[in-house]
Nucleic acid binder design. Structure first.
Lengths: 150, 150
DNA sequence: TGACAATAACTGCCTAGGCAGCTAATTTGC
DNA sequence: GCAAATTAGCTGCCTAGGCAGTTATTGTCA
């Protein structure tokens, strides 16, 4: 089904614009919340994904967060330097570097969860339970379409 | 209403993550579609906003697209160099530079609308009319909340 | 009016992240 | 069983965009 028509197309109704704006405003708040905490929001997200089992190698993580592997290497460098993660060469596949949270990394991650959850709740505070559920469903539906090959 | 709780927080249900992913995938397609057309998607969006009256000065545009004024100056430089826009010092307020589309700028803009509309329709092709409407409504609701001062 | 704040546009500078290329290790196909 | 393709991680290089500072102009208010 075609929801947009070339003849009447306006910038403000584009989901591209709306997604960008919503994401941008949310990130602004997240980064502001993190700025006194000696860790970047980007870095923190990596810790979160490690904890949630969404990847324990660089390749898995960069597929997950949508960065390229070069960019991720540098984020991991910073996290390792701050002793928040550890890298160790895999014995099964020696190309792979296995990542794990250190005790400090775990502590850092946990300590900032309430802050993040708070910001998210602020953002969707006006949504009813039904609206929230529907919003997640539609976002996931959109993502599924965009992830499909063509 | 609180939709997220610290104790059960998981990366994948975060609207931050979902918005980023959806926007990233969409931009990927948009930029790919533009890559043989001698204009950047970013540049094209500026042309679009000029046409739609969403700003005809640098300051208005950068508030609209969320860039800073330095970044926008450079985008405008590129557009001017390609003769797609013109700058002229305002007579009412001599700090202001008024922007306008040239004939070529208009043509460039128009010629690429179908491409963009196509990509957007692809993205939301699986949505019913009701789903699409609701998705826009919820996105706008979220943005309104995030734009509110605190 | 005259100082001072605010605003528009612009300029360097810096950083994050994308891309291409590299090496090492592994998998695949003949 | 070996050459070719693939994959993991990493490194330079480049660009886009954010930030801070500059200049010119306008608005404000004592």
């Amino acid at each position: 089904m075609k929801h947009y028509a070339a003849a009447s197309f306006k910038a403000r109704q584009s989901i591209g614009y709306l997604l960008k704006r919503a994401h941008g405003l949310l990130m602004e708040r997240a980064e502001a919340a993190f700025e006194n905490h000696d860790i970047t929001f980007t870095q923190w997200v990596i810790l979160l994904r490690l904890r949630d089992g969404l990847g324990n190698t660089a390749a898995e993580l960069c597929r997950g967060v949508g960065h390229d592997s070069g960019a991720l290497t540098r984020v991991l460098d910073q996290l390792e330097k701050r002793r928040l993660i550890e890298r160790s060469r895999s014995k099964q596949d020696r190309r792979v570097v296995e990542l794990s949270l250190t005790r400090q990394g775990h502590a850092m991650l946990e300590s900032l969860i309430p802050l993040t959850v708070d910001k998210l709740n602020e953002a969707v505070g006006d949504f009813s339970a039904a609206e929230f559920r529907e919003f997640l469903r539609l976002l996931e539906k959109l993502i599924a379409t965009l992830e499909a090959p063509k």
